[in-house]
Design a protein around this nucleic acid. Sequence first.
RNA 1: GGGCGGUUAGCUCAGCUGGUCAGAGCGCCUGCCUUACAAGCAGGAGGUCCCCGGUUCGAGCCCGGGACUGCCCACCA
Length: 865
Amino acid sequence: MSEPDDRSLKERTRFDPSEVEPRILAAWLASGLFHPEPEGTPEENFSIAIPPPNVTGALHMGHALNGSIQDALIRYHRMRGQRTKWILGTDHAGIATQTQVERQLLGEGTSRAELGRERFVERVWDWRRRYGGTIIEQFKRLGASADYADERFTFDEDYARAVTHVFVSLFDKGLIYRDNYLVNWDPGSRSAISDLEVVPREVTDSLFMIAYPLADGDGELVVATVRPETMLADTAVAVNPGDARYAHLIGREAILPLVGRRLPIIADDYVKVDFGTGALKITPGHDPNDFEIGRRHGLEQISVIGEDGRLTAAAGERFAGLPVADAQVAVVAALEEAGALRGREPYTHEVPFSDRSGQRIEPLISLQWFMRMEELAAPAIEAVRSGAVRIHPEGQSRRYMEWMENIRPWCVSRQLWWGHRLPVWYCDACEETYVAAAAPERCGLCDGELRRDEDVLDTWFSSGLWPFATLGWPERTPALAAFYPTDVLATARDIVFLWVARMMMLGIELTGRPPFHDVYVHSVILAPDGRRMSKSLGNGVNPLEEIDRHGADAVRFGLLAMSSTQDVKYSAEKIAQGQGLANKLFNASRFVLLSIDPDAPAQARPAAIEDRWILSRLARVERETTRRLEAFDFAHAALGLYDFVYGELCDWYLELVKGRLAADSPDRGAVSSTLLFVLRETLALAHPIIPFVTEEVWSYVRQPDEGLLAGGGFPVADETRLDPQAEAEVEWAIAATQAVRAWRDEVAIKPKIVIPVRILADGHHEVRALVARMARLRLDQADAAADAVASVAVPGGTVEVLAGEGVDLGAHADRLAKRRADLAFEIEGMRARLENAAFVAKAPPKVVALRRARLAALEAELEGL
RNA sequence: GGGCGGUUAGCUCAGCUGGUCAGAGCGCCUGCCUUACAAGCAGGAGGUCCCCGGUUCGAGCCCGGGACUGCCCACCA
């Protein structure tokens, strides 16, 4: 248990997160609450696997929101008594980490190549041992109640075994295969990357018109291209079969300029008649579309660009060795010289770039490993279609479906050093391939030496196993039995395909069950300027600095409050609102604790109508908050809590009961009990969202036999306390109070003056005294016949102000005139509505009655003036 | 080229199945050091709910069209 601050509560007039948070965090960590024993079943337990942050990462706003959401869920379920595990760990993040360490090496004047693979990998491990825990520590600052005692890494020994096991078994099932295929080659990382790691960007290139002479006689065919340098690898020219201009050329041949190769002129529907010249050069070796066309027509595939982004020897002596950009200039010059260039115009289009290195993708034919996806996708589609897995918000699930239904093979091999190396060996002598969990000694056929594949697996291959590999799968561990499948997967929209979809497919394929039953896709937090936060733009907001400034509760509250189903701009105001709430709750607690009878037990003992009111409101906010957490509606859960604490508990209830807490008050004991009860319930209710301040205050209100709030019970709404009558009465009292206060303010009556009044309204006897207290009125005017000097409209009646000291009504006349005008306008509108026969006939009687009553009230008020 | 969302107070956003729905926070103005909180309290000003049609007794809320804006997917060289 944490030791409360030395200073007395009386002196702590502000909630100070920087003092409280480390203390509370230490208490949580020491309690063992975050580390559940692996017992029970996944159905009765609750678990979430964190989207593993890159081991190189630092906490950014996305993590902070993602963590706040998961922690709210985790704490809620833990408080409800479930055995709760938040699976924590980091991702080895192949390219990101390798790049980071390479940069470090560069600073030391060495390089990856100089070190060699083995020593390089060792360096990365060193790096990870030194800095890899950073982001985990940062999650603690947020108050994230993850299982820090059981941290995982996607490159741990056990995890690596699982990865190898998966590769081997999917290979054995025929789902993993090796093929020569046109891949997205990233010259930046010198590796193939998957379709999902490619981002389109708008680029202005030149569209060149090049004349290809016909082989049999005169005439030429002009093609349009933005990449003239790839012409060196052309193996055909294609036209649309329905294009009358070229119909006579189909089946004939053209001569490739500069090269002299004879190219068949083929017909393919892909070619657009109205684009360019209507004739398309076909380069199966360097263009994805041409690759497909080439396969359809059985064309040769020629490569003239190498993995280093330079032209190869196949490009011919003149161009070999040139980087593609230079090669383009050289080829265009050569074409011009040869008189083959027919035109050139600026052309803006979308071009693929590497999301990793930022370099332009170079489509290349390469021998890579692929995973066949259709078979894996089918059950993953079915899981969502059947409702076994629910994706929130609803709109995301259709996207998921569409992507799954159009899925393509996944290139899983990467030409990196940092990653899970493929469990594949080759015998060069007899060209045999071995895929196995353990390295075979020698070739089984020729007894020759074996050579292991140099490639590693795409990082997402291993993160696709995250929810179960972290729990010890493929072994049947107790943790797996207790916590798999997990319950909820919370993630930002940007990795739904990259990660969530693959976990679904691999989870179902390998464990037979979807890895979670709810997927909550949350916002991406944009910078205040509406763009994505990024280092290069320098528009990022650092969550740790925000925690330093406003406290973790404030950041959590703010992020949850601003979260939504779509991207949201970072709102500093919402964080400030959260800070306000934490401070307000803290001070309200101080007031309660410093004012009540210390011996009063915490229990609901309604002794007055306002007690019934607050208990009713409490039951409602408990019911609503629970419903919203269950529905992943965190914004409304947070804001609803705010409204209750500020707008009901502090603004009204605490003010209403102040008098009853006096030492000589007859129901001091009862009010004390109720106050303490409401406070304790409120703390527990708010804890999943603002855990620090609630835990801190809890240390003052908990019973000797109670532990931390984090391990305590979540409040259950007591529906028997719902009291519509009390709510209506107190609502009336509030409205009346506000009306009188507004009037006082307008006629400039000093706040301290108590004015004598007479309330003219039916009923509301139980709450008249409350209005008097809150609005500084005196009701006990002995002279009931005294003349009213002014009257203030309140719902259903008026308050007549009697002559008294300090009541100077200079401004009153103006006010009356304005009020009369307002009333007349409203009455007119209401009458018009009620005189409309159609409205009276067709609208529900309740609505009509409501308007009649409203009209009567307005008329009565006008008359009273 | 296809989808999907957004457009409500100066700013950031709530507004569930149409009927007190025109709201919140911040900002602004006025008044208060009222013994929980001055990072506070009380009060106030401020909006053709993007535009045009339509449905309805009644429309931010439903339908049609348009404008602007953001995102996702996609192989027009």
